[in-house]
Design a protein around this nucleic acid. Structure first.
Lengths: 337, 337
DNA sequence: CTGTTAGCGCGTTCAA
DNA sequence: TTGAACGCGCTAACAG
């Protein structure tokens, strides 16, 4: 049935030399006779010899494979991030193993365990939203598997991470709206336990202050990112006696759902009510009325840089690597028309 | 620095038994003394022993890893398909290695080679658009690596594939429009070399015939899937003296771009001109005027079934597997608003 | 019930 | 310039 794959032994047998000679010849080892080398290489080519990487993985204790664990691929942010990871990995002869946590800690643990057992050389993670303990990551130190966190980052000492600072972009968003004359600017924030929410809130308030707009607790609401919750948040906002004319939304999905709600209440998007959002989904290109501006978080670059960092840790043979936190700056991008 | 991982040998040494005894005890082999078994398992637990999968991979010549190669993750269709693949794989203790071809044959070849070298147990592929030769896939037979194609499938004898037949859905789309009273129904098709294009064209014509609408060559145009090309196609359609009132678009991206163009020409979507499309992007939920209906192709299910099929081939020890083509039926889904 | 032996494919000493 | 021997961690065939 299946042709048996040629091995070094096989070549050695046919040529009446030893396996180690073949191995050396294949590696262009300097101390091998030209004649022998040629013979070996010729036969190797003829037999279509290819080294069995698994044997080498095994022997070297390295797999040239890294793992990527994140909540779900179907979110554009993540699939674009994976592209960045994969691009750098491929360029540097690394392979990429994937797993989706679906924002569930148990599943995340399970995946990390499986990956650890198959001896990945490193791991890139965007932590699940409901993950509360991080032992499954810290545990990887015992196996000498470095971890780089990106996007959703835990509070851990000495960790490696790539993230995007939202302060600047968020403040720019508030500036942007204020310059357009808005005085009543609301914030639909995400779940409290997320870093990302705290960042947005802080920057939002700073932005208001900078623009001399008085903050109003009634204009700060939150969503758990479900559609229903966002609708409820919108309902709440529109009931305020002096309702907002502009809204900073946690991300594009939230913005889009908020817009739907606003439309259902006969508000005209970008006229009666304006939006600034996060993430910059490509699909917004197709909307009749996209958010006026979006805080770009550079998922491709985050992924790429995360892989780059991980690579530098893995290949750091002298162990002089220090924990590194890379922080990119977010940037406000007005929609092009 | 790094704690050395405990091995079977180590456990054996400490307990003064042989390695194979430990191995058997760990596997609950029936012929092992209860006492020994307990001892071994206790010590294993204490030392945090975990088997080194790479050793087993090596020894068994299996990696419990499959590869997935497709054009790009950032297209929703593909990222959803991967989710299906990953779900089935995880359930069955398989891992998933990924690669993006970016629709480029050379890159595709490269990825397949790398994956082959690391001895994946099987491969799932959606072929790159510009792939013209398939040796890199047929070559895998020599390594006993089964391939399952999905979505974009080559014309190869004896292949395994999962695909979605568009005939039914497309015809239903034409029916749908005809029932709404449309007589001038256009088709914006994709590149000629794609199967998918031929399928759509055939079904479109059949649909017209069924509804007793005379076909008009001027209403069949094509796009290379670039925005510019779609705009050109639209321009062409709108110049026809009796222009279409409805359009069947190659996919949602094409539809969305076509809509943009139509809007720029002051046409009102779903009033002056209606759309039926393919793929059913989740983002359409957020459009003010989504296509009236979409031909659903079930990417999650395609991915899931592809992995299921691959799994059955891999685990078919008696080699009684026959090449299998699974064809799902597409289905027209009207937008619920 | 348990130990011994061998081998998966390769790289790498050490010795010639 | 080459070969023999060893070991990576584990399983399995064979032998007690």
């Amino acid at each position: 049935m299946q042709k048996k794959l040629p091995t070094i032994k096989e070549i050695a047998r046919r040529l009446n030399v030893s396996a180690s000679t073949v191995s050396r010849a294949l590696h262009n080892h300097p101390s091998i006779g030209l004649r022998t080398k040629m013979q070996v290489q010729a036969l190797a080519k003829e037999l279509n010899y290819e080294r069995n990487e698994t044997a080498i993985f095994f022997q070297k204790g390295k797999t040239f494979t890294i793992g990527v664990v994140l909540p779900r691929f179907s979110e554009e942010f993540f699939s674009v991030a994976i592209s960045g990871i994969e691009d750098f990995a491929t360029k540097n002869k690394y392979q990429v193993l994937i797993g989706q946590s679906y924002d569930d800690m148990e599943r995340e643990k399970q995946i990390v365990t499986t990956m650890k057992n198959s001896r990945i050389d490193g791991l890139i993670v965007s932590v699940a939203k409901n993950t509360s303990s991080f032992e499954h990551f810290e545990n990887l130190r015992n196996y000498n598997i470095p971890v780089v966190f990106f996007d959703c980052i835990p509070d851990l000492p000495d960790q490696n991470s790539v993230s995007c600072n939202l302060q600047q972009g968020t403040m720019a968003g508030v500036d942007f709206l204020a310059e357009k004359g808005h005085k009543r600017i609301a914030l639909i924030n995400g779940p409290d336990q997320l870093h990302a929410s705290a960042q947005r809130a802080t920057a939002y308030l700073a932005g208001l202050k900078k623009n001399k707009i008085k903050e109003d607790a009634a204009l700060m609401v939150r969503t758990d990112l479900s559609k229903e919750s966002t609708y409820a948040a919108m309902e709440q906002l529109l009931q305020v006696k002096n309702p907002p004319t502009a809204i900073v939304a946690f991300n594009d999905y939230v913005a889009l759902e908020a817009m739907q709600y606003a439309r259902s209440r006969k508000l005209r998007i970008n006229k009666d009510i304006c939006f600034v959002s996060f993430a910059h989904l490509s699909v917004c290109n197709y909307l009749d009325n996209p958010p006026l501006a979006s805080v770009e978080q550079f998922p491709y670059e985050q992924g790429y840089r995360a892989m780059e960092l991980l690579y530098s840790i893995i290949t750091d043979t002298e162990n002089k690597h220090k924990p590194t936190q890379i922080v990119l700056e977010s940037k406000l991008v007005p929609w092009g028309n």
